[in-house]
Amino acid sequence: MPAVTMGLAEAKNNFSKVTAEVNRTGRPVTVLKNNRPWVVIQPAAGAAQTDAVDVAVDFMDEYADVFRELAK
C-alpha cells in the first residue's frame, strides 16, 4: 500500500476531508512542506473505530431536540 502524502496547501484547504479520510481508513497522511515531510495526520492513539451503532446513538443525542419537535 503506497504512502499517502500531500502538500501543506492542499491539506489546509481540505483539512476536514483529509481528517475524515484518515479516520475512516486508519491510514496516516504525511503533509509535505517544501517537498519534505512536515507533519503526519493519523488517527488518535487508542481511539477505537466507531461502529454504526455508536454513530447512530451520537446522531440521536445530537439532534434529540429536533426529534422531539418532529414528534409533536
Rank of each mutant, 00 (worst) to 15 (best):
M1N: 11
M1F: 11
M1E: 13
P2N: 15
P2D: 15
A3C: 12
A3E: 14
V4T: 11
T5D: 00
M6S: 04
G7D: 15
G7C: 04
L8E: 12
L8N: 07
A9Q: 12
A9D: 11
E10P: 02
E10I: 02
A11C: 09
A11K: 02
A11Q: 04
A11V: 00
K12D: 09
N14E: 12
F15D: 06
F15Q: 08
F15S: 09
S16Q: 13
S16E: 15
S16D: 14
K17Y: 04
K17Q: 07
V18W: 02
V18Q: 02
T19G: 03
T19Q: 06
T19P: 03
A20P: 00
A20L: 04
E21M: 07
E21Q: 04
E21K: 04
V22W: 04
V22S: 02
N23S: 11
R24W: 02
R24S: 08
T25F: 01
G26W: 00
G26M: 01
R27D: 13
R27P: 00
R27K: 13
P28G: 04
V29Y: 00
V29G: 02
T30E: 10
V31A: 01
V31T: 06
V31Q: 02
L32V: 00
N34H: 09
N34M: 05
N34E: 12
N35A: 07
N35V: 03
N35K: 10
R36E: 08
R36V: 00
P37L: 04
W38L: 03
V39T: 12
V40W: 02
V40P: 01
V40R: 12
V40L: 05
I41K: 08
I41M: 10
Q42S: 14
Q42I: 01
P43V: 09
P43I: 06
A45N: 10
A45K: 10
A45Q: 10
A45G: 09
G46A: 03
A47G: 05
A48G: 09
A48T: 06
Q49A: 14
Q49M: 13
T50W: 13
T50N: 08
D51R: 05
D51M: 04
D51T: 07
D51F: 05
A52L: 14
V53D: 15
V53K: 15
D54V: 00
V55E: 13
V55R: 11
V55W: 07
A56I: 07
A56V: 06
A56N: 04
V57R: 13
D58Q: 13
D58Y: 05
D58G: 13
F59E: 07
F59D: 05
M60N: 06
M60Y: 09
M60R: 08
D61S: 14
D61Y: 12
D61K: 15
D61W: 09
E62C: 08
E62D: 08
E62S: 12
Y63T: 10
Y63N: 12
Y63W: 13
Y63S: 09
A64G: 02
D65W: 08
D65R: 07
V66Y: 03
V66I: 04
V66A: 00
F67W: 15
F67R: 15
F67N: 15
R68Q: 10
R68I: 06
R68C: 01
R68V: 07
E69D: 11
L70V: 08
A71D: 07
A71H: 05
K72D: 11
K72T: 08
K72Q: 12
